[in-house]
Amino acid sequence: MTSGPGTGGRAFQKGLEALAQHVAREGRLPGRGVVEVLPDGVEHRTGIWIANIKARRAKLDSAQLAALAELGVDWAR
């Protein structure tokens, strides 16, 4: 299975799921050290993920950027 920020793959979807969960609970974006536990029990290093995805934002497609912007990620607008 292909994965990563440029593919819209499972890794990006897991990150987006973790980010949405955090924003819904906390009302803000996560700090760098935040780890979210997803409903399936998987721990996701959401704070690191958002920093990494920002560094690679040139590889994101418009749908991925829109999904991030919808969750309050300013640089994705």
Results as ranks from 00 to 15, higher is better:
1 M>G: 15
1 M>Q: 14
2 T>W: 09
3 S>D: 14
4 G>N: 07
5 P>C: 14
5 P>G: 15
5 P>Q: 13
6 G>L: 04
6 G>F: 11
6 G>H: 13
7 T>P: 05
7 T>E: 04
8 G>A: 11
9 G>P: 02
9 G>R: 02
9 G>Q: 02
9 G>V: 03
10 R>F: 13
11 A>E: 13
11 A>P: 06
13 Q>V: 05
13 Q>D: 05
13 Q>K: 12
14 K>V: 13
14 K>T: 13
14 K>R: 15
15 G>V: 03
15 G>T: 04
17 E>N: 10
17 E>T: 12
18 A>T: 09
18 A>R: 07
19 L>M: 03
21 Q>N: 01
22 H>V: 06
23 V>Q: 06
23 V>Y: 08
24 A>M: 06
24 A>Q: 04
25 R>I: 08
25 R>F: 10
25 R>L: 00
26 E>I: 01
26 E>M: 00
27 G>K: 10
28 R>Y: 02
29 L>C: 02
29 L>P: 00
30 P>C: 00
30 P>I: 07
31 G>Y: 05
31 G>I: 02
32 R>D: 12
33 G>Q: 06
33 G>A: 13
33 G>Y: 12
34 V>F: 08
34 V>D: 06
34 V>M: 00
35 V>E: 05
35 V>C: 04
35 V>G: 03
35 V>L: 07
35 V>I: 00
36 E>K: 01
36 E>V: 14
37 V>C: 07
38 L>H: 11
38 L>D: 00
39 P>H: 01
39 P>S: 11
39 P>M: 07
39 P>L: 10
40 D>F: 09
40 D>V: 04
40 D>S: 13
41 G>M: 00
41 G>W: 03
41 G>L: 00
41 G>V: 08
42 V>N: 10
44 H>N: 01
44 H>D: 02
45 R>Y: 08
45 R>C: 04
45 R>H: 06
45 R>D: 08
46 T>L: 04
47 G>Q: 02
48 I>C: 10
48 I>E: 12
49 W>D: 04
50 I>G: 05
50 I>P: 07
51 A>E: 03
52 N>P: 05
52 N>D: 14
52 N>Y: 05
52 N>E: 14
52 N>C: 12
53 I>M: 03
53 I>H: 09
53 I>L: 10
55 A>G: 14
55 A>P: 01
55 A>D: 13
56 R>A: 15
56 R>V: 08
57 R>D: 11
57 R>M: 09
58 A>Y: 14
59 K>R: 15
59 K>I: 10
60 L>G: 09
60 L>E: 09
60 L>A: 12
60 L>K: 00
60 L>H: 03
61 D>H: 15
61 D>L: 11
63 A>L: 12
64 Q>W: 03
64 Q>K: 07
64 Q>V: 13
64 Q>R: 12
65 L>R: 00
65 L>F: 04
66 A>P: 04
66 A>K: 14
67 A>T: 08
67 A>S: 04
68 L>Y: 10
68 L>D: 07
69 A>K: 04
70 E>V: 05
70 E>Q: 14
70 E>P: 07
71 L>Y: 06
71 L>W: 00
72 G>D: 04
73 V>P: 06
73 V>T: 09
74 D>L: 11
74 D>N: 09
75 W>P: 10
76 A>M: 02
76 A>R: 03
77 R>S: 10
77 R>C: 01
77 R>M: 07
